[in-house]
Structures are given as C-alpha cells and as structure tokens.
Write a protein that binds this DNA or RNA. Structure first.
Length: 466
DNA sequence: TGAAATGTTGGGGCG
DNA sequence: ACGCCCCAACATTTC
C-alpha cells in the first residue's frame, strides 16, 4: 500500500478536510504531519496568543486522529527540508494539503509544490478555508473587487455550498514519530494565559458545540445582538475558523441545511460576516502589499502622529481613561479576544484620536488576539484607518462615550473589565469625570473633542491632495 | 459598521 | 383665543 503525507496547517480538523479525504480516497496510507516553521511567515510570525491556541488545537487534533487509529507527526524546522526527510523516511509518493493565502505562505507553498513535482512526488493542494477561492471571484471586467457589497452579491451565488465531507471512519496506523508538542515552545514562559483557559476550548469538537449553541441561541437576534459587547450575541468562532478547526462550509451547512425561508433570512447577517472574512482573503491575495502599505496609495504620505510610547502603552494596557476603550483593551489582554464592536472603537481611537499609524494597532492585535489572522487584521485596520477597501470615510470618527452608552447601556461590559469603575451607576460609568473621576483610574489621556478636530483637519488635508 | 452642527416641526406654557 | 417663545424630537447637512 502506498503512503502519502497529509500536511496539516490551518485545517486542524478531520471532518470536511479535503486534503485528508483525497489522500484516503486515493488509497494511500495517510501520515498526518504538522510542521512548525514560524520563521517562514516573517514578518508576520504567529503571535503569542495564537501560539497558545495552536498548542491546544494541535493537542485536540492529535487526539481526534488517535481515535481514528493514526497519530499526528509533529516536526519543526524548515518545511521543505522536513517534508523531504519524511518522504525519504516513509517512502511517501504524494503530499496533500489545504491552501493558505498569506503572501509569504503562498510563495513558500508554490516553491514546495514545484520542488516536489520536480522530483516526481505528487503534490495536491485543496480548497478548504473559504467560501470561494480568491481568484474565483471577479467583477465584470475580470478585476478583483475593492468594494464589499458587490463582492458579497457575487459570493452569495456560491451558496449553498456542497455538503461538508464526512470524517474518515478510520485511518491506517503508521510507525512514524515526531517531536514532542512541548518542544515547539508554543506556550508562554510566564503565565499570562490564565484567563484564556476559562474563556476558550480549542479544537474541532468544541467549535462544533459552540456553533450549535450559537445557532440555537444568539443567531435569531444576531443582527442587533452582535453589536452588544455586554451580551453573548456573537459566535466567537473566529479562532476556530482561523485554524480551520471548523470550515465555513460546515458553518453554512449547519445554518442553512433544512432551514426554512425565515431561518435563512435570520442567518444572512451572520453569513455576511463570513463574507467579510472571504473579502479579507480576497484583498490579501490580490493586493499582498497591503499587510504594510495602504491599499489606497493616496495614504502613502498621510501625516500620522509621532508615537509617544507612554500614550501607546496606555492604549495597549487599557489605561487611556476612556472606559469602553480600556474595557476592550483589557478584555483583549485577559482573554485574547475582543468583541468586534469594541475593536472598531479602540481602532478608531488609535488611528483617529491618537492619529497613530494603523500598523501600531495591527501589530498589537497580532500578538494578543487568539484569532489573529493576517487577512482579517490587515483588512480591519486599513478599513478603520480609511486607507483600505470600502473603508470608513475619513470623517467617520467614533465617539467612544456615545458608543459606550449606546452599546453597553448598563455599563456591565465596562464593569467586568474595569473593576475600578464597577461602583459607578450606568449614567456615569462611560464618563467617570462627570462625577469628579475615580481614584486609581486615569484621567483621559487626550481631549476627545480636540483630537477629533485635529484628525478631521489632517484627513481633509489628505483629501485636498487627491 | 458616525458624530456634530444645523434646520424644521409641533406641542405646551405663558402673557 | 391667540401669538409668541421655548425646546425636545426628529430630519438634514456637513465634516
């Protein structure tokens, strides 16, 4: 019987895994492999929070594979060298994997594919991560989209997707061994991750349970509920989707199969968010320079403010003196995740009120989010800064007080993450200075009205230059 | 997937 | 009963 490597990357699941299924269907003995090679993702090497997630996700995948009779082989080093070593060791005649779209990985994978085929090894890459491959969606003139709404209209024509592939019922055992998970050094050396264990359960099984819970509970009121950080109104599936513990196809299938027309309509706002996820990948694939450079070249000379390390640190650690901003940044620090509405608020604060380059925010999120994803992070920050696709216009500057009062009206989100303010009543909690301030909680690090006006002035200068 | 400034309207208090 | 003013509530415009 022939042997094939199934190279796991960001598809850490056994159900609906096209590469795994294809290897099995071709009659190979599949050898599941994960190769840790963070240096190949430079300059966006996985951050500390995603490494934490990855550790636990690999643990879960290894257990799932074990239950099917096979073991996950862990390696570290140069991917191409490790694959070659494994091919020699096992006599594998083929390598199967599911695609990724980060610019550095697209280049690496293309080179690996070429190398394998050059030596007579079959190399099969599969679509598994998105609703549609980035190159499949084109506008009328054959160009990639830069505006979400028409992109989404086009993407929706792919729905409903084909049924997800079932997990193999069993796998042929193999004798290959790899390194220990601990030797990948994914977990932090100092234990800042205590808050993560209560907040998350990495792995496919937990992701499916979470999807179920979301579909039964919050989905119905998602259109409004998703904007409320004080309530469990979102799916919280972003890290599982990032690592492919669950696929968009499995999500869409759960929400749409056997759904009535009314249920389909309720699912639409959530599927639209999956559409934004695809849109981010579409942009990243077609405009790979946007990980550092603005998509809109008019932003090349934008007068970002010089960074004051104390101010940046106040933002990072949730000590800006603006309650909703601090609550969000502390939620991020404590749990590796932040509610999407609050991400927009803190990002607007950094790029517009502080007028810092969006990359300062992108890098912080990159290191602290368990769902840090190059496509989504790049797209999200450029959108906020105004330099991205379909971006927030330069004059759209969030007022964090108004946003706090509107979306955390009782103040319970702020109370949870900013305990210094917990005693304040709802009518004052978003403006603690209105009751003379609170001991131990900072005064606002900037004047919202004045910084807003300064941002408007800077952005309107840019507009003149266009 | 804004906020603030400005404009308009209509109910009610009051002389 | 009437006109005047105030101002909340809503709509429109501007950044």
């Amino acid at each position: 019987m022939s042997t094939a490597l199934v190279w796991f990357r960001r598809d850490l699941r056994i159900a609906d895994n096209p590469a795994l299924c294809a290897a099995v269907a071709a009659g190979h003995t599949p050898i599941p492999v994960y190769i840790h090679a963070p240096h190949e993702e430079q300059p966006w090497e996985p951050g500390a929070a995603t490494r934490w997630w990855l550790h636990h996700s690999l643990l879960a995948l290894a257990a799932d594979l074990k239950a099917l009779g096979s073991g996950l082989v862990l390696c570290r080093g140069d991917t191409a060298l490790e694959l070659d070593r494994l091919i020699e060791q096992t006599g594998a005649c083929a390598v199967y994997w599911n695609r990724m779209y980060d610019p550095a990985l697209v280049r690496r994978d293309a080179s690996i594919k070429e190398g394998l085929r050059g030596r007579g090894i079959e190399a099969h890459s599969h679509a598994a991560h998105l609703i549609a491959e980035p190159w499949e969606i084109k506008n009328g003139s054959g160009e990639p989209y830069r505006v979400f709404t028409p992109f989404w209209r086009k993407l929706k024509t792919c729905l409903p997707l084909p049924e997800p592939l079932p997990a193999p019922t069993s796998l042929t055992p193999h004798e290959v061994s790899g390194v220990e998970l601990d030797s990948l050094e994914l977990l932090p050396r100092i234990d800042w991750d205590q808050g993560f264990y209560g907040a998350w359960s990495p792995g496919s099984e937990a992701a499916r349970e979470q999807l179920d819970e979301f579909a039964i509970g919050a989905l119905e009121n998602y259109a409004q509920g998703r904007d409320r950080p004080d309530r469990p109104g979102t799916s919280r599936l972003s890290p599982a989707l990032h690592f492919g513990e669950i696929s968009p196809r499995q999500v869409a299938d759960r929400l749409l199969r056997k759904a009535s027309l009314a249920q389909r309509e309720l699912a639409e706002p959530y599927l639209r968010e999956l559409g934004w996820r695809d849109f981010g990948h579409h942009l990243l694939y077609h405009f790979p320079h946007t990980t550092e450079q603005p998509l809109q070249s008019s932003f090349a000379d934008f007068p970002w403010a010089e960074v004051d390390p104390a101010q940046l640190s106040a933002w990072q650690r949730g000590r800006t003196g603006i309650p909703i901003v601090d609550a969000g940044m502390r939620q991020l620090w404590a749990t590796g995740w932040m509610h999407n509405r609050v991400r927009m608020i803190v990002a607007s604060f950094l790029t517009k009120n502080l007028r810092y380059h969006w990359l300062h925010g992108a890098r912080w999120f990159w290191d602290t989010l368990v769902d840090a994803d190059l496509a989504a992070n790049t797209q999200g920050w450029q959108w906020t800064a105004g330099s991205g696709a379909d971006a927030a216009p330069y004059f759209r500057i969030f007022n964090p007080i108004t946003q706090g009062e509107r979306f955390d009206p009782l103040g319970s989100y702020v109370r949870k993450y900013v305990p210094e303010l917990a005693h304040l009543p709802a009518e004052h909690i978003h403006q603690p200075w209105s009751v003379g301030g609170v001991r131990g909680y900072p005064k606002p690090i900037l004047d919202l009205k004045h910084s807003r006006e300064a941002a408007l002035a800077a952005y309107s200068e840019l507009r003149k230059g266009i």
